[in-house]
Design a protein around this nucleic acid. Structure first.
Lengths: 149, 149
DNA sequence: TAAATAATTGAATATTATTCAACTTTATGT
DNA sequence: ACATAAAGTTGAATAATATTCAATTATTTA
């Protein structure tokens, strides 16, 4: 056994998929060359960033999902991009947004369980510049990445 | 002009992509038939729900992104799934999670601009059973769907 | 430890993406 | 309004890729 599964999951999170031109052509009843041309244009214009897989996250062992609200200290407040760039390297983080209001940043984080999340919070999120953290834990994921579960 | 672009975007949100077996095979140095077998297994097991595109949402005209926190009334509190199922039909909603804590539900919503979001909030989210709504507006999206922007 | 099941793989085939050149439509400048 | 350029559409030919199949190896189960 070569444990190809985990390697596939890692690749499919980043991309490694591609449009099904023939199927789309049939669906919207246009020649496949026309579909091809239009897709390449979207890619060239940067409108499409990647093609990737949407998972049943329970089944790939990262079923513990949280939203993390972060408040920054006054000195970090003016430069939230520094921290967000830093955080973006971590595979556990599905999304990072800099937001308005009482909080400066919201993360969507996926880990195996609460213990793994706790470690992640202590080691990655908590750092100087971060004043307060609130975690909203998902009890049930109804829809993700525009896909109903 | 046939405005194929919008049709493609709609299809790519749902799926209509497929793994690049040959590229993966080269990348992890295994025969393509082995990769094929392992991918089909993931699909059969339900671990992979779909293959879809990740967009630069500004460039496809839905650059206004919000997180919506929803509190339910005592009578709806015990059955958050009813409302979430109802909401999941709407294309503007990227994700729906039922959560712990002060709020019962969190949505990630993508619209063209604040006006379109305001209409969406009034017509779709606000309804009996929803006691309170707080909107966190994204000022900058650093990472989405595991992809750095 | 034998039998059954799951996983790996190369060769053959089927399907699909891509290229190209011709043509049509739309946009641009004077 | 008209000529010209640029963008978009398309069928035919080719290149690349996925899929099937049967044989082999590894792993699990009784």
């Amino acid at each position: 056994m070569k444990d190809i599964k985990q390697k596939l999951i890692k690749l499919f999170k980043q991309g490694y998929s591609t449009p099904q031109i023939a199927r789309i052509a049939k669906k919207i009843k246009e020649p496949s060359t026309t579909i091809h041309y239009n897709i390449k244009k979207l890619e060239k214009d940067g409108a499409i960033k990647a093609y990737n897989a949407v998972f049943d996250y329970d089944k790939i062992g990262i079923g513990y999902c949280t939203f993390v609200l972060i408040r920054l200290s006054p000195d970090e407040y003016g430069n939230p991009e520094r921290l967000s760039k830093e955080l973006s390297k971590h595979d556990e983080i599905e999304s990072i947004d800099i937001i308005t209001g009482d909080w400066e940043m919201i993360l969507k984080v996926r880990t195996k369980d609460k213990d793994e999340y706790f470690n992640f919070m202590k080691n990655v999120i908590s750092r100087k510049g971060v004043t307060k953290i609130t975690t909203l834990t998902s009890l049930k994921q109804v829809k993700t990445e525009f896909v109903n579960l």
